[in-house]
Simulated assay, not measured.
Amino acid sequence: MYARTLATFALVAPASALIRFGCSQLVVERLDPLVTPGLNPSPHLHQIIGGNAFNVTMNPSSGDIAERATCTTCQFSEDLSNYWTAVLFFRARNGSYHRVPQVPNIGFEGQKGGMTVYYMQDGLANYAQTSKVTAFKTGFRMLIGEASYRTKEQANRFRQITYTCLQTLGTRYPETMHLPKEPCPAGIMANVRFPTCWDGKNLDSPDHMSHMSYPELGTFENGGPCPESHPVRVPQLMYETIWDTSMFNDKELWPEDGSQPFVWSMDDSTGYGSHGDYMFGWKDDSLQRAMDSPCYVNCPTLKTQSIAEMNKCTLPSVVDEKIDGWLDTLPGSPTGV
């Protein structure tokens, strides 16, 4: 796992492509068109970024989401993909819940919540970024993580899903697979890294994972070869979400036994159930063009929009329920619907 700040990483210019960009919040609601398409509402709350073609179904037969979307919350206006994760809540000593706000990363000040997204030729540990990659295709989608996992043994399957307890917004290590157990001065960063090897045939699979694989050596950071079953190397996709937990850091608010009080929207206080969803929606050949160019963080081959334009792209929630303020139950819990 990369154990350096981005500032240190930035001192070495890569040979080719690593793009890093912000995406503002599109909508926060209980929809999941990948895992539970057509189900309104879905079992737990998600925070979604990207193009405004996002909806309850998003059937591949409906066409290219890059053609259906009219705006995107992402910095690169040719990226109309959708990216989403679960939502973090604070559980107070009295048992009530409050949604934790999201804040932008360094360099994206003014962005409304959302996430930071990376597309890389190699993991962050490889400064050179030299691997040739094939961009995802129209209709491609994938999932990493399992919402039902609650033990470290289960989560070992997804060692690429981690947390960073932020001492400052520039902190990037150490990383843990469980939610931090002590107050984090600048918040909690949730890190999600997707597999980098594709079977070259299927745009999706029944579990939304089997068409993808990590390298043969099983890690994202060693740049190992792809297995024969999944021979096509694709960009390393990564999300960073910063949850501003600072307003809840007074231990007098925490459970009396001192246990950490943060819980994912699927009622997971371990952190092992963290997961990320992705639906590809880059226009035309824009992502492949970027991956074949000497892009670094920003990319002159891509069209860039202002943070103000990113913030304008929003969707109204189609699920009528309270998600803000103090809640007696998590959205979607048996007694909270």
Score class of each variant (00 low, 15 high):
Met1Arg: 07
Arg4Phe: 15
Thr5Leu: 05
Thr8Asp: 14
Thr8Arg: 14
Thr8Asn: 14
Phe9Trp: 15
Val12Cys: 11
Ala15Met: 10
Leu18Gly: 00
Arg20Phe: 04
Arg20Glu: 05
Ser24Gln: 08
Leu26Val: 02
Val28Trp: 00
Leu34Glu: 07
Thr36Arg: 13
Leu39Trp: 07
His44Gln: 04
Ile49Gly: 06
Asn59His: 14
Ser61Trp: 12
Ile65Ser: 00
Ile65His: 01
Ala66Cys: 01
Arg68Cys: 00
Arg68Ser: 00
Thr72Pro: 00
Phe76Tyr: 15
Ser77Val: 07
Asn82Gly: 04
Asn82Gln: 14
Ala92Pro: 01
Ser96Pro: 03
Val100Tyr: 09
Val100Trp: 08
Pro101Glu: 04
Pro101Arg: 11
Gln102Asn: 08
Val103Arg: 14
Val103Glu: 10
Asn105Val: 03
Ile106Gly: 01
Gly110Asn: 11
Gln111Asp: 02
Gln121Asp: 07
Asp122Met: 09
Ala125Tyr: 13
Ala125Lys: 13
Lys137Met: 05
Gly145Ala: 10
Ser148Phe: 13
Arg150Thr: 10
Glu153Ile: 11
Gln154Phe: 09
Thr162Val: 10
Arg172Trp: 11
Arg172Gln: 12
Leu179Ile: 10
Pro185Phe: 06
Ile188Lys: 07
Asn191Glu: 09
Phe194Met: 06
Pro195Ile: 01
Lys201Met: 08
Asp204Arg: 14
Asp207Lys: 09
Glu216Gly: 05
Leu217Phe: 13
Glu228Ser: 15
Ser229Asn: 12
Val232Arg: 07
Pro235Val: 01
Leu237Asp: 00
Met238Glu: 12
Ile242Glu: 00
Thr245Gln: 04
Phe248Arg: 03
Asp250Pro: 01
Leu253Pro: 00
Pro255Gln: 12
Glu256Met: 08
Gly258Tyr: 06
Phe262Asn: 01
Trp264Asn: 00
Ser265Lys: 05
Gly273Trp: 07
Asp277Leu: 13
Lys283Pro: 08
Lys283Gly: 02
Asp284Leu: 13
Asp284Val: 08
Asp285Glu: 09
Asp285Arg: 10
Gln288Lys: 12
Gln288Asn: 13
Ala290Ile: 11
Asp292Lys: 13
Cys295Glu: 05
Asn298Thr: 15
Cys299Val: 06
Thr301Leu: 13
Thr304Arg: 15
Ser306Leu: 06
Asn311His: 11
Ser317Pro: 12
Ile323Pro: 01
Trp326Met: 05
Asp328Glu: 08
Leu330Val: 03
Pro331Arg: 13
Gly332Asn: 08
Ser333Ile: 00
